Lab assay of single mutants.
Amino acid sequence: MATVKFKYKGEEKEVDISKIKKVWRVGKMISFTWDEGGGKTGRGAVSEKDAPKELLQMLEKQ
Rank of each mutant, 00 (worst) to 15 (best):
A51D: 02
L55G: 00
V15Y: 01
S18R: 13
V4R: 00
V26T: 06
W34M: 02
T33S: 15
R25S: 12
Q62V: 05
F6W: 04
I30S: 00
E60R: 02
Q62H: 09
G37K: 14
G27I: 02
Y8E: 04
W34Y: 09
Y8F: 07
K7S: 08
K53W: 11
K49S: 08
E11V: 14
S31K: 15
A2L: 05
M58Y: 14
V15D: 00
G10R: 02
I20V: 11
V4A: 01
V23Q: 02
D35F: 04
E60K: 03
E48G: 05
Q62E: 12
S18L: 09
Q57N: 11
K5P: 01
V46E: 01
D16I: 06
L55M: 03
E36D: 13
V26L: 04
T33A: 07
S47L: 05
G38K: 08
K40Q: 15
I17H: 02
K61G: 14
L59P: 01
K13C: 10
E54M: 07
I20G: 00
A2R: 06
M29Q: 13
G42A: 12
G44D: 01
V26F: 03
V4K: 00
D50V: 06
E54C: 12
V23M: 06
M58C: 07
F6D: 01
L59S: 05
T3H: 08
W24Y: 05
V23C: 05
K9H: 06
Q57A: 05
K40H: 12
F32M: 11
M58V: 05
K22W: 06
Q62I: 10
G37R: 09
R25D: 11
G44M: 07
A51L: 03
E12Y: 07
L56A: 05
A45H: 12
G37A: 13
A2M: 15
K61H: 13
T33R: 14
V46P: 00
M58D: 03
E48I: 04
K40C: 15
M58E: 07
K49A: 06
R43I: 05
R43C: 12
G27M: 03
W34F: 04
K9A: 12
L55C: 02
T3M: 09
E48P: 10
S47N: 11
M29C: 14
E36Q: 02
R25C: 13
V23E: 00
T3N: 05
G44Y: 08
A2T: 11
S18M: 13
L56G: 03
M1V: 06
S31W: 07
E12F: 08
M58G: 02
M29D: 15
I17A: 04
T41Q: 06
G39S: 15
K9G: 15
E48N: 08
S47A: 15
L56Y: 06
L59F: 02
G38E: 14
G44N: 04
G39P: 10
I30G: 00
E54Q: 05
D16P: 12
L56S: 08
K21A: 15
R43W: 02
K5A: 03
I20M: 12
L59Q: 01
L56K: 07
K13D: 01
K49C: 15
K49T: 12
K61Y: 11
K19Q: 07
V46K: 02
G27H: 07
E36M: 12
I17C: 11
Y8N: 03
A51C: 14
K49G: 14
L56W: 04
S18W: 05
V26W: 04
V15H: 01
A2G: 15
K40V: 13
G44R: 01
Q62A: 04
E48Y: 08
T3K: 08
V23I: 04
G10H: 06
E14Q: 04
L55T: 01
Q62P: 12
S47V: 07
S18P: 07
T33K: 08
V26R: 10
W24F: 05
